[in-house]
Design a protein around this nucleic acid. Structure first.
Lengths: 203, 203
DNA sequence: GTCTATACCGGGATAGAC
DNA sequence: GTCTATCCCGGTATAGAC
């Protein structure tokens, strides 16, 4: 960095959240640190603590923002998928995959265990809204009961998260798969799960 | 610790690998450290470095052992599942889930990015054998081509890994799901993926 | 082969100046 | 509101004694 150290003039709190997303996308949650976020913005390592009491509260703000933005991305993908409920629900897997690949902020961040004790109502509302949205997309299919809708959503989230994790871990890089290609396979897997739910299992 | 500090009499190398599994199961890869493994065994923090040049080589040994044991668990589960190829393949998801829940050593450990540069032939043979075994289980189903077999295996691994990650992250604890229950749902999801592969998609 | 002790690094968090 | 400076902690890894 050749930039001179100077006061950050502007909304440092928002800038910290934005920079946190960039850092997560670059190095992942494992190597995320408040100090690195501060370095990224060219502010001192103490500055973030004026806006967040500790690391967990910064991550909580990131989690809430991620839940909100991910919900938007899912709604947009559902619209794009057309009128068929199964297609709209399957689109969740693709939207999730793309969002997490580009931001690094997946469910392991949004629902990180270290956040359970952080009483951030904003975050909790956004995460609730996110889950409600996905459950509504599932309810719009011909799934017979609420319980089965929950189980279906669970499996779709699992497969989307699985593809995302494997991709982040470098599992697909040897096969040189593109983001688009893997996103497509995640959607196809979700379609398969939805289809199986609506058809009798052969014994 | 009331235990006296004393020499570790025995195979410390093997003990380090075993203790590493215990630590992974307790705190996960995120908080895994060589120092903690040494503490667990009551040896000095320097002792591990007599047997492994660095942290990555210790993890590489863990990775190889995990790949070998996981392959055994998968073969056993396939046997238990009976003669139907689809059931045998679906059993992979359950075996994977149970193995990772009890050991903490899943694909994120076995194929950890930090191991790519560690030239450990033992590990590489075990990981190859693991993948080969799963691909063979897929080939035994009526999957039409090798490529589709790879894609099917990929989706099964993704869903199994997804359930495992979500479980480890505490996603299911609010619903107080047991390990057995979630393992069953992972197998059911794998069955759905296999079934979809062998049936024409409705457009 | 394991010990003690230590150098080094980096992150979390706080104190006090401006 | 941000700075500099500092403390504490814990992990990685090495040196040298036993």
């Amino acid at each position: 960095m050749s930039r001179e150290r100077a006061y950050h003039h502007g909304d440092l709190r928002a800038a910290l959240v934005t920079a946190s997303f960039e850092l997560l996308a670059e190095v992942g949650l494992r190597r995320f640190s408040v100090a690195a976020v501060a370095r990224k913005l060219g502010v001192s390592s103490a500055a973030p603590y004026r806006h967040f009491p500790d690391r967990a509260h910064l991550l909580s703000a990131v989690s809430g923002t991620a839940a909100r933005d991910l919900r938007s991305a899912i709604l947009a993908a559902a619209e794009e998928a057309g009128p068929v409920a199964a297609d709209r629900l399957a689109a969740v897997a693709g939207a999730y995959f793309r969002y997490v690949v580009s931001t690094g902020a997946g469910l392991h961040v949004i629902y990180a265990a270290e956040l359970y004790t952080v009483p951030d109502e904003g975050r909790r509302e956004h995460t609730r809204a996110l889950m409600d949205t996905v459950l509504e997309l599932a309810a719009a299919t011909d799934v017979p009961s609420y319980q089965q809708g929950v189980a279906l959503v669970e499996s779709i989230i699992a497969v989307a998260h699985g593809y995302t994790s494997l991709f982040a871990e470098g599992f697909f890089h040897r096969g040189s798969s593109t983001v688009d290609a893997v996103a497509g396979r995640a959607v196809a897997a979700a379609q398969a799960l939805i289809r199986a739910e609506s058809e009798p299992a052969r014994t």
